[in-house]
Amino acid sequence: MNVTAIVINAVAIFSFLIAFLKDREKAKKSLKIAGKSFIRMLPMVFIIIIIIGLLLGFVPPEEISKFIGDQSGIVGVLIIGVAGALMHIPALLAFPLGASLLESGASVTAVAAFITTLTMIGMVTLPLEIKELGKRMALLRNGISFVIAIIIALIMGAIL
């Protein structure tokens, strides 16, 4: 178990204890919600880890790095940014997927672009966003989000 995992678990246990002391019923309710969401997420967890296993096992790093590696340039970053914008997977699972891409030869820029567009932009939820906030605002938010995601990714690639 690494340090991060220990810290996260400690924070969770500590927070739960405080919550439990404050309001038992509410604490129990949140535990129930946690259990439900965990079970709800499990199939997706398995899907992602199998994809990661196949990706790292079958696709040679040279291939991945050709498309989204350091030498692929801005086109690769844009492609994976679009992929992130189109995909609809829980944000929590974007990070292991990003880590596996990084491991298999993708650049920091590409992974940052992927994660940022994946979390910020929702093509699947766009109709709902338009309905609630209006076409102009929804399109502006998603469009500009894509641009800033690419900028963030480029800066990260330059610094890290």
Binding site: T4, S30, K32, I33, S37, F38, M41
Partner: peptide, 11 residues
Amino acid sequence: ILPAVMVLLGL
């Protein structure tokens, strides 16, 4: 980490 993260989300 997922169970811990889920507990935090639930809280």
